[in-house]
Amino acid sequence: MKTFFCLALFILSFNIRAQYRYGPVVQFGFSHVWSDFDDELLEHRRLFGAAYSLGFFGEKNISAKSSLGICLQLQHIGSHEETEGAYYTPRNASHSYQDVDTYRRSLGYLSIPIYYSYDYSSKIKLQVGWNTSFFLVHFQNYIWARHRDDKFVPTYLGQSKYLGFAGDDRYTFIDFGPQLGVLYSFKPHWQIQATYYHGLQQIVASRSDWQAYNRSFQLGLRYILKTVPQS
Rank of each mutant, 00 (worst) to 15 (best):
D168V: 09
Y118F: 14
I192F: 07
L183H: 12
R104W: 00
H147N: 09
T155E: 13
Y213W: 07
Y196E: 02
E81A: 05
Q201S: 14
G85K: 03
Q98A: 09
R104F: 01
F186Q: 13
V128S: 13
Q191K: 15
S117W: 07
Y118A: 12
V128W: 12
D119M: 09
D168Y: 02
L126C: 13
Q193V: 02
W130G: 04
Q202K: 13
Y171N: 05
Y103M: 06
V153E: 02
D150H: 14
V137M: 02
R215C: 03
G85V: 04
Q179A: 06
F217K: 00
Y97V: 14
R105T: 10
V204L: 08
K151G: 01
Q202A: 09
F186R: 08
D101R: 06
I203C: 03
A194D: 02
Y118Q: 12
Y118C: 08
L163Y: 02
P188Q: 09
I174T: 04
W144F: 13
Y142K: 01
G164V: 00
S106G: 12
D119G: 03
H147Y: 10
T172C: 07
K187N: 02
W210M: 15
Y88G: 12
D209A: 02
G181D: 03
T132E: 12
D149Q: 10
H147R: 12
I174A: 05
S94W: 03
Q179F: 02
A205K: 15
A194E: 05
R148I: 13
H138Q: 08
Q179C: 03
Y87W: 13
E82P: 00
Y156W: 15
A86N: 09
L200C: 10
D168N: 11
R104N: 01
L183I: 14
K187G: 05
I174H: 01
W210Q: 15
D99Y: 02
S185T: 14
S121R: 11
Y184R: 11
F173C: 01
H189W: 04
H147D: 09
A194C: 15
A145H: 03
V182E: 09
S208I: 05
Q191C: 10
R146Y: 05
P90H: 10
T132M: 13
P188D: 09
Y196Q: 06
A93R: 04
I143W: 08
Q211S: 14
Q193S: 01
T83A: 11
Y97P: 12
L107P: 02
S160Q: 12
Y184A: 05
T89M: 14
S121A: 15
Q179V: 05
D209L: 05
E81W: 06
T172Q: 11
Q191A: 11
W144L: 03
R215N: 09
P113Q: 13
S96H: 04
S160E: 12
L163P: 01
N141W: 06
W190V: 07
V182S: 07
F139Q: 06
F135T: 00
S185P: 13
T195S: 09
Y171V: 05
T89C: 13
H138K: 09
W210F: 14
R104C: 00
I114K: 10
S121F: 12
D169V: 05
Y116Q: 10
S96Q: 03
Y196H: 06
W210H: 15
L107K: 01
T195Y: 03
T155V: 13
H198G: 12
L163H: 04
Q191T: 11
Y213A: 01
R215E: 05
L110S: 04
Y116F: 13
S111C: 03
S133I: 00
S133G: 01
S208Y: 07
H198T: 11
L136Y: 02
K151V: 04
P188F: 00
